[in-house]
């Protein structure tokens, strides 16, 4: 009886030591899998916005992801209120302009070119002015709002800061923060 209680104590003491060790080891393992500081630091891209042409999609790169830049033509801005979301059945009026970034006098769509469904790259079709994702058939309009599911939301807008005619991706400017607060992007 006395022996077994001493063994019991030793078992518990070992359990406590091993438990602390296991938690520490799991924490170290979790941190080892984290993205490296160098990976996180290499996360800024600067775009010169004066170089883009209307209704011509340019794909830039930021944090290894494709970034869509689409300068809106006057025609695209005019038709914006007529776009109808297939998900809500309502016009996307009002939402549209909020998704665009105004630099100088021009409006730009700048978004992460990965389908919000499962991360394929949608293709842009200048004739119909929309994006089609070949993987599962999702469609977006010319401001990257969802026209046809399965995507659950429009293409995400990367953190940006306006700097004259330049746009810095990876930094959060006041315009981006406002988009985030109003739920325009995640």
């Amino acid at each position: 009886m006395k022996n077994s209680s001493r063994r019991g104590f030793m078992g518990k003491a070992f359990g406590a030591v091993a438990g602390v060790g296991a938690v520490g080891a799991l924490y170290a393992m979790k941190k080892t899998w984290d993205p490296l500081p160098s990976v996180k630091a290499a996360g800024f891209t600067t775009l010169d916005m004066s170089a883009y042409k209307e209704n011509e999609l340019v794909v830039e790169k930021w944090r290894g992801k494709p970034i869509f830049v689409l300068k809106q033509s006057q025609e695209m801005l005019d038709t914006e209120n007529k776009n109808i979301s297939q998900i809500t059945g309502k016009t996307t009026a009002g939402m549209d302009k909020k998704r665009l970034i105004k630099i100088g006098d021009a409006h730009y769509l700048v978004c992460i070119g990965l389908c919000t469904h499962l991360g394929c790259i949608p293709g842009y079709r200048p004739e119909t002015k929309d994006f089609l994702c070949a993987c599962h058939g999702g469609m977006y309009d010319d401001t990257a709002m969802v026209k046809k599911s399965p995507p659950p939301r429009g293409l995400d807008i990367p953190p940006f800061k306006i700097d004259g005619m330049k746009l810095v991706l990876g930094e959060e400017g006041p315009e981006y923060k406002k988009m985030k607060e109003t739920g325009i992007t995640l």
Binding site: W33, V39, G64, P152
Partner: peptide
Amino acid sequence: GSLHADGLVEWIRGDYVPAQA
């Protein structure tokens, strides 16, 4: 899906996209 556990995805990858890590 709607949980948006993007941090978990980046943790699994060790980067924002599949890369060296």
